[in-house]
């Protein structure tokens, strides 16, 4: 009997959107990342789990071009720099790539938002930085983006400090997706929200991923969030990736002792 050759999955036949190899980062004596590599394909959601201090946030900061790595390369499908290691960009180019191609939602909204500006202004900021100079267009774009993030439009001109935690996360999300980024980074986007609001924010994220097909990288220690959103998952510990694979596979049948511990530690 002749066996048919196995084709790789559809998803992986495209060129990866994100390619990072051999990322290293140390802060003084502390080694935050040791030789971390990752790829993400178009429209894929890559989850990163791990305990506090495992290097998740450092990894996200590197991918957000906030800091440069000690070693390693990072390529992103971000014209005109798609053939260039993004760590070699100068300050000005890096800012342009960040504005146009990378969106980020922080766990702490204070990091991502101007608390005393209006919510719509927070969203418009990204468009302004990208060069939009028409007030009417800014209003329209901000309204659209907030609507897509399920933000109540009646409050679009309230400052984030007057909004609830869930709404602040939606403003962050609207700001992150305002320019349809190539890569969306989510740093614990639902941690600190109560369970029902968490579910609503996750719904929004899921719908956005489905509608816009943005490649997402989601960092969380909540395995429920990872299970809901992520296609693939990487488990990190001590700055290393200890296990990686399909979400179902990793969460149902963990191989590495640490992952087993993590999965079983659920309440």
């Amino acid at each position: 009997m002749q066996t048919l050759p196995l084709k790789p999955p559809q998803l992986t036949q495209h060129n990866p959107v994100v390619r990072a190899t051999g990322l290293q980062k140390t802060y003084g004596q502390v080694v935050a990342l040791r030789d971390v590599s990752l790829v993400a394909y178009p429209g894929e959601v890559l989850g990163i789990v791990g305990e506090s201090g495992s290097g998740k946030s450092t990894l996200l900061r590197l991918l957000n071009l906030q800091e440069s790595a000690d070693a390693g390369t990072f390529y992103l499908e971000a014209s005109p720099h798609d053939q260039q290691d993004l760590f070699t960009l100068d300050r000005y180019q890096a800012r342009q790539v960040r504005v146009r191609h990378i969106g980020i939602v922080y766990q702490n909204p204070h990091l991502g938002l101007r608390m005393n500006h209006t919510s719509s202004g927070n969203v418009a900021e990204r468009l302004i930085l990208a060069g939009e100079r028409s007030f009417g267009s800014l209003r329209r774009a901000a309204r659209e983006s907030l609507q897509v993030s399920d933000f109540p439009l009646g409050r679009m001109d309230d400052p984030p400090r007057k909004l609830s935690g869930g709404m602040q996360q939606r403003v962050q999300l609207a700001k992150a997706i305002a320019l349809k980024p190539t890569l969306l980074l989510l740093d614990e986007p639902t941690t600190g929200l109560d369970v029902s609001v968490q579910a609503l924010v996750l719904d929004t994220l899921k719908r956005l991923q489905y509608e816009l097909g943005i490649t997402m990288l989601i960092v969380s220690h909540d395995l429920g969030v990872i299970r809901t959103l992520a296609d693939r998952v990487m488990v990190m510990r001590d700055g290393r990736v200890v296990e990686a694979g399909l979400t179902d596979q990793i969460l149902e049948d963990p191989q590495h002792p640490y992952t087993q511990q993590l999965v079983h530690a659920k309440l």
Partner: peptide, 22 residues
């Protein structure tokens, strides 16, 4: 000062936007 060096003044328009909205 970095923004001045790069002539990157987008943020200033944010201030005007805020005024117009408020």
């Amino acid at each position: 000062r970095e923004l001045h060096a790069d002539a990157e003044y987008g943020l200033a328009w944010l201030g005007i936007y805020e005024d117009l909205v408020r």
